[in-house]
Nucleic acid binder design. Structure first.
Lengths: 208, 208
DNA sequence: AATCACGGAGAACAGTTGTTAACTGCATGG
DNA sequence: CCATGCAGTTAACAACTGTTCTCCGTGATT
């Protein structure tokens, strides 16, 4: 089934990845709608026209970046929530996971936070789509847990969306604290934990 | 005290306002970091160099827009929260207020949501500053209410920040539903209400 | 009434942008 | 082994950008 890729396709994928990496780097201090195609190719060290071999436009590049940043995260989220434990432990695990992810892939996180409401419609749509998938998956996991027994599926989706948004806000919070001293980062983690714990408490008393 | 402004200052303020309005319009489909100074002056019908009489750069314009979009909102928020009523009624009032505000000033709301994590550092800082002020004010109002009696001031600030973020998410949600049929808009309002009500429930049981 | 201050216009600058076209070298499939 | 497809190059295009300098008209100041 898996046809070993020829030298040529490997090279193509390599420059494609180089373009995406360079773009991510440039997007740390600007938004996608101001990212020039030449800017990207210059950073890679390749001719401007080579860009068209991989992407139709910078918007197209952006959509690919969304997939790269969020696509591989679905199984991670599934593993997190299927691991048993009371909700307080789950909160701690989630916050820790987010902190680790922000440390490992800051540029990805920044890109998503920035372009979620950014000026490029197709990219916004791609992110919204991925986040909707996340919410759906969280809802499915929520249905297995005792905390939401007797809930409407619609209410579960509401809670799932709230959690997903909260995760993004948390990630963005950690992003701002990246270069700050360890003390500040610890404060951010405690703050995020308390926020999510308050939500989980609200969840415990929802059916009153 | 109030020195009546001369003809000249009035004209200056008028073109300054025209520049800001034009920029806000252009920013509906792009982000500030890609907004050109010439683009703005062209939309107003004024020479490019006139821009410098009012703003040092587009980033400077952005900071002014932040002030225009959020500055006048502080008393509104104060009125909202000082009006007595149980928390459920407060939630309904808040959601309704946000919906009305999004209808009246969609461009302002879009701008804030977009540039909060946008690519222009001074503008991000200005928004963060305003949001911090909002959080502080909400905390002060929270301290007067019975729901947070016995709370740490730090916990009150946590809740206040959560509410402020939730208001922004709600506004952004309504923004997406602006052109959709009335039915969809009603669903968005119910969703936002449930989210905030769940938080307020969590608040009621925080001290356990 | 004469001077000044200043918002705005105009022209020009070097540098940048996206996109097209025709070309080159080489891995690949028959 | 040879012909083809295709990633990447080079050159050129008109259009656009931010910024500087010089100038103009007129409301404001004394």
């Amino acid at each position: 089934m898996s046809h070993t890729l020829g030298i040529r396709q490997v090279q193509k994928l390599k420059t494609r990845q180089a373009l995406m990496d360079a773009a991510l780097g440039l997007l740390e201090e600007q938004s996608l709608s101001s990212l020039g195609l030449r800017e990207v190719t210059r950073a890679v060290g390749v001719a401007p026209t080579a860009f068209y071999r991989h992407f139709r436009s910078t918007a197209d590049l952006g959509v690919a970046l969304v997939e790269a940043a969020l696509g591989s995260l679905h199984p991670v989220l599934g593993d997190l929530m299927s691991a048993v434990g009371d909700s307080d432990e789950l909160v701690e695990r989630a916050v820790d996971l987010i902190a680790r992810h922000v440390d490992a892939y800051p540029a990805h996180v920044r890109f998503i936070a920035r372009e979620r409401h950014g000026g490029v419609q197709p990219v916004r749509a791609a992110i919204q789509g991925q986040l909707a998938r996340f919410a759906e998956e969280v809802r499915a996991e929520l249905a297995k847990r005792p905390e939401t027994a007797g809930w409407t599926d619609d209410d579960r989706l509401m809670l799932a969306g709230l959690y997903v948004d909260q995760m993004l806000m948390t990630a963005s919070l950690f992003l701002e604290a990246l270069d700050e001293p360890e003390e500040e980062r610890a404060r951010a983690m405690r703050l995020a934990s308390r926020r999510m714990r308050l939500i989980s408490i609200g969840c415990r008393h929802w059916l009153d």
